[in-house]
């Protein structure tokens, strides 16, 4: 089974993210693989371990993205494609178009990726890619079974329960992080990653011109980033619960208009 895993390198959201004049400050930020994409890499590795075949990572972005790709290779992915791209402003639509170009003429059974990227939290790119490639999509899966080279059963976390979906490949599938616990890279994996093939492409290698890239190739743009109005800590109640709880509830009813 040939699987392509598009991954996105994002600022580590566990750390402090700074904004200056409406832009995210990149200096001093540590970049990581978006956590849902790590889940996708792990899922792809498990599938190829069962059925054979290779996992190919796809990263789009500046030079630093090659680090994310090498980390994915260290986990065990077989090869990587790096579209070297100084992003400027590109939205999900623009990225999906670039990915669709990368897929042209390639042999794959499955495109597996995270349900959303940890920086934009948008969750749009994979489904758009599926539409552009005219492939079926299943998003937000928490399990897979009946693995075969031409299809599998997927369990999607939907609004009203777990949807059980049989799918014929090729397809685009996105993962929820409860699918698995991504493996850590081993020392050998880290060393071998350096020797694994990494194909570096430019947008022009893909036959894409300026009108298809950046803001021109996008449908939306970000005007500015802001720190949300942070919630301020309110009132504290300390002491015996038989006193603090009635006090708090009284305030909830009188000040915040709690009604039950």
């Amino acid at each position: 089974m040939e699987i392509i895993v598009p991954i996105r390198q994002v600022p580590d959201v566990a750390l402090n993210i700074r904004v200056n004049e409406g832009k995210v400050v990149e200096d001093g930020v540590s970049f990581v693989i978006s956590s849902w994409d790590e889940t996708a890499i792990e899922g792809a590795l498990q599938m190829t371990e069962e059925l054979g075949g290779e996992v190919t990572l796809l990263g789009i972005g500046p030079e630093r993205v090659s680090e994310a790709l090498r980390k994915g290779l260290a986990m065990g992915a077989h090869k990587a494609i790096h579209v070297l791209y100084e992003e400027g402003q590109t939205d999900s639509f623009g990225y999906a178009k670039i990915m669709a170009k990368v897929m042209e003429g390639r042999n794959y059974d499955l495109i597996l990726t995270g349900k959303q990227a940890q920086d934009t939290d948008a969750g749009l790119t994979a489904s758009m890619l599926a539409e552009f490639l005219d492939l079926p999509q299943v998003t937000n899966i928490i399990r897979f079974s009946d693995l075969a080279v031409d299809g599998m059963t997927l369990y999607r976390k939907g609004d009203h329960g777990t949807e059980v979906i049989g799918i014929k490949l090729p397809a685009v599938v996105t993962v929820n992080d409860s699918l698995n616990e991504p493996r850590l890279a081993s020392m050998r994996g880290i060393m071998m990653a350096k020797k694994k093939p990494m194909e570096t492409l430019s947008p022009s290698d893909l036959g894409m011109g300026a009108e298809e890239l950046g803001l021109q190739g996008s449908m939306t743009e970000v005007l500015k980033f802001e720190k949300p109005e942070s919630r301020k800590e309110g009132e504290r109640f300390e002491g015996d619960e038989t006193e603090t709880v009635p006090m708090a509830i009284q305030k909830l009813v009188s000040e915040a208009k709690l009604a039950v």
Binding site: A185, M187, I190
Partner: peptide
């Protein structure tokens, strides 16, 4: 750092190739 460390560590202790970095 991780890459060069792994290479040097395995020179000293080849048995550590499957050790994973937390």
């Amino acid at each position: 750092f991780l890459e060069s460390y792994a290479a040097h560590l395995l020179e000293l202790f080849p048995i550590l190739h499957n050790v994973t970095v937390q």
